[in-house]
Design a binder for these strands. Structure first.
Lengths: 121, 121
DNA sequence: ATATACCCTCACATTAATGTGAAGGTCAAG
DNA sequence: CTTGACCTTCACATTAATGTGAGGGTATAT
């Protein structure tokens, strides 16, 4: 299938599909006229790529294990686990940071409200 | 004081101090030779700016209420509360998103570990 | 042959604060 | 008058995936 059809089937933009190719995640063959020709399997591959992107992995990281997970279960791809753990660590750090800010903001909002209450009296 | 001294006192880079001026957060006067001359109050102002930046506010948002909070308590600056609430909402959304990813990652890690255990047997 | 609906590549824009470096003026001490 | 430590402005780079648009080729139906 050509790129337009793959985009329609997957909901991923032409731009992104070409970008995935540039990043080595997708390698359609080229027709004589230069058009990309995707195998039927590409549809599933794109969905897999999307899944990993939604986990916050970069195309670089995905490229490191994609060809493996497309053929095997994740558990058989030794590159996956360390990347998951690394990402999990980042996420936890980020949540911690945001939680601190959240508490700070809540305290400040509370202070303002109390101050305003006093002034009303 | 000149920019180098202010940078040394506050730990904020020259680049950032100039950027704050560009964003309207800091307005040193200019000496005849073109050098920026900061009032002694600038040190505290910079610390205030840093505080708001650390809450995740943009220079645009800070510019909206900075001149007020430098003179009054936050509670008297009506622009502050809505901005805090907006930011709080963003933070909560972000935490929610990250928490979903976190759970997803944890599940996947768990699955991999269990699968590997089975394979070992 | 022309319209239309595809496809191609290349390249700039997006966000926000900060880093970095070039090219050059100012000032004080020697 | 030179050195060194300041200061100035300007401008490009950083991150990552995606949007957008120009300029142009291809294929099919009329």
């Amino acid at each position: 299938m050509k790129i337009g059809e793959l985009a329609a089937r997957t909901g991923v933009s032409l731009r992104s599909l070409r970008y995935y190719e540039e990043q080595g995640l997708l390698t359609p063959i080229r027709l004589e006229n230069g058009y990309r020709e995707y195998s039927p399997l590409a549809e599933e591959q794109v969905q897999t790529i999307q899944l990993y992107l939604q986990l916050g992995l970069t195309t670089d990281q995905i490229a490191g294990f994609l060809h493996c997970v497309l053929k095997n279960k994740e558990a058989f791809c030794k590159e996956v686990l360390p990347i998951y753990r690394e990402k999990l660590g980042e996420i936890e750090t980020q949540i911690q940071l945001l939680s601190n800010i959240k508490r700070n903001l809540e305290d400040r909002i509370q202070s303002i409200l109390e101050e305003q209450k006093e002034t009303e009296e």
